[in-house]
Design a protein around this nucleic acid. Structure first.
Lengths: 154, 154
DNA sequence: TGAAAATAGTATCAATTGTTACCAGTATGA
DNA sequence: TCATACTGGTAACAATTGATACTATTTTCA
């Protein structure tokens, strides 16, 4: 029987968040200095590059970003001429997002840098460990995504 | 040769942050509803329970929380009577933090809940996968902690 | 149809978080 | 020992983030 003592360093949610923040901070500051993009902004660029003509709503669903966050990022990117928005003829409340030529160019610069950064951070791990790691992340997502964690009042 | 295309869903820093946020949100809302504690506050409680008489500065170093965050959490906990602070005789700028009786009682309630929550989330994974997962997290920390990621201007 | 409910997106406001400036105390070393 | 530089902690401020309210449009169904 294992001792039921809580040690913060061994507490998995803490470990996970600690590591994740470490990585996010490193990446965020790299993007900020290299391209002047915040993380939400760079995520929009990436998602739109993959899915031309996507709507903000869909981006929010896909990335779990708040719709306000998405809206602000979209406005900022449009203001910088990286993004073009046109009314969605199928639903005039929403708009279709497309990268402008400049946006595509920027993306062309970002993508390899992002991959290089990823390699710098994760490249040291061997393929099997990495695959297992990703699989575990997905399993966690599945559990957390479906369950809820508030024990009925007691 | 692998195709060098960036797919957001396959981009590890993104996956990691996505999953971590999912878990953090679930945990944060559980603590908030059960005990009225924010994540920083609950971390302080945990760290102080483990290290009686620790200083804020040390907590910051250990958890990578900003010293202002630590300060606020400490003030809030003290205000709620969960924490006692006494001047550090060895260095009168700093204070030694100790849980009050109520604080220890609360911790006594929190700790098992936290472990239960952890089990709910990670219990589905088998031990080996879990150990590998933690090992990978630590390797990532080591890499990110030491390297810096801003390619010299180019 | 057309009135009521729902949705995409934005603006406004509130809360959280980080930055900077500061104060009290400590260490250094001329 | 006293001037200078440094550190722990907090206060005041700025920026970021999230919650709420609102507008324009679409969907539903009586």
């Amino acid at each position: 029987m294992t001792k039921s003592v809580l040690v913060l360093d061994d507490f998995l949610p803490y470990r996970l968040s600690f590591t994740s923040n470490l990585v996010s901070d490193a990446i965020a500051s790299a993007y900020e200095t290299l391209f002047g993009l915040s993380i939400p902004e760079w995520r929009l660029v990436a998602v739109i590059a993959e899915n031309n003509g996507i709507t903000q709503q869909m981006i929010g669903a896909r990335t779990r970003m708040d719709k306000v966050t998405v809206s602000r990022a979209a406005i900022a990117l449009t203001g910088r001429g990286l993004l073009k928005r046109s009314v969605n003829p199928a639903d005039r409340r929403s708009q279709l997002l497309v990268l402008s030529r400049q946006g595509r160019e920027l993306y062309g610069q970002i993508a390899p840098k992002a991959l290089a950064l990823e390699k710098q951070i994760f490249g040291a791990l061997d393929k099997k460990a990495l695959a297992a790691f990703v699989a575990t992340l997905k399993r966690i997502e599945a559990v957390v995504g479906t369950a809820h964690f508030l024990p009925a009042a007691e």
